[in-house]
């Protein structure tokens, strides 16, 4: 059957299509990812094995020295402080963000939702540095907050240059992310499930705890993780608001790369460690995040 044969020749073979299709579709994003994510990460990974490297030095990987230095008490203290800031920020974002997202997603009238959401996301359009400076002028001893407190006869608060200021600054910076993701999750919440719970005898509080929270658990986990990761990587707020004892892993990494105490090897080792930690937690979230997604 010569005619059928020539027809086959014109058509791209199915196996080729099967390979080409994903290749063509993924190529642009793939190039982007490889150039701007994979390659730099590999460079950091390589640098992490070079002790005391500074800009311009030859890269000669030689052992795990940089990683061992992570376990020095001082470095562990810095990492512990980072975790404390990040966990604290996540908890505050949750406490402040959940009611807002709940109200926006479940209670607020539909036509107001977009406007209110916009208002909430607006701070994201300003520079993070500018926001930190704004907090300085609010929190400083004679700042806006204390003027307000004084005008109603309350004692002044000394928050700036201490941990509370860092938590305030980071919570403010990251709250929009928390609200946005939780809102997306809560907005999809099936109201009929809330009615079903009430129908079965659950008070509003019981409904919230036994139905709403489990329903938005994936969103809760995702938003908390996002806030946590961002808080872990924030070095502007700790530096500007945190005072003399606010060295965090992110600040240390920054100093090791672009600061006054360059050591790209140590900075890379700490970066690698953070990347591994963050990747692991994301992987865990994806694997165990959503029980409902399980199918037959």
């Amino acid at each position: 059957m010569p005619s059928a044969k020539s027809k086959d020749k014109d058509r791209t073979p199915a196996w080729l299509v099967r390979w080409l299709e994903p290749l063509v579709l993924l190529f642009p994003a793939g190039v982007w990812l490889v150039l701007l994510l994979v390659l730099p990460t590999l460079i950091i990974f390589e640098l992490s094995f070079v002790p005391g490297i500074r800009p311009g030095d030859l890269v000669i990987p030689s052992g795990l020295g940089n990683y061992l230095r992570i376990f020095e008490p001082l470095t562990l203290l810095v990492i512990g402080r980072s975790l404390l800031f990040a966990i604290g920020t996540t908890v505050f974002c949750l406490l402040l963000g959940f009611p807002v997202a709940y109200w926006l997603g479940v209670i607020a009238p539909k036509r107001w939702q977009n406007l209110l959401l916009l208002a909430f996301v607006l701070p994201l359009w300003t520079s993070s540095l500018l926001r930190s400076y704004a907090w300085i002028s609010i929190l400083r001893p004679t700042g806006v907050l204390n003027s307000l407190l004084a005008s109603v006869g309350l004692p002044s608060l000394d928050l700036l240059n201490q941990m509370p200021a860092v938590l305030i600054g980071m919570t403010y910076s990251l709250l929009p992310y928390m609200v946005l993701i939780l809102y997306a999750s809560l907005e999809k919440l099936d109201r009929r499930l809330l009615e079903a719970a009430a129908d079965l005898g659950a008070t509003p509080a019981q409904t919230f705890w036994w139905v709403t929270v489990p329903q938005v658990l994936p969103g809760l986990a995702a938003s908390s993780l996002l806030v946590f990761i961002n808080a872990l990587g924030d070095f502007v707020n700790p530096e500007l608001l945190g005072g003399p004892s606010s060295m965090t892993a992110a600040r240390l990494i920054y100093n090791k790369f672009l600061g006054a105490t360059p050591d790209w090897g140590m900075g890379s080792a700490m970066s690698t460690m953070l990347i591994v930690m963050v990747t692991l937690s994301i992987a865990l979230l994806i694997k165990y995040g959503d029980r409902r997604a399980t199918d037959l």
Binding site: L193, E195, A198, D199, A202, V211, P214, L217, R292
Partner: peptide
């Protein structure tokens, strides 16, 4: 309020709690 009324409802789209097993759904009330 609905949670104090001695009625129970079978909803149009069932409104089963998708985070709970069949057993847990039934045991909810």
């Amino acid at each position: 309020p609905p949670y104090r009324r001695p009625v129970n409802t079978v909803f149009q789209s069932y409104a089963l709690f998708n985070h709970l097993t069949v057993e847990e759904n039934i045991a909810f009330g």
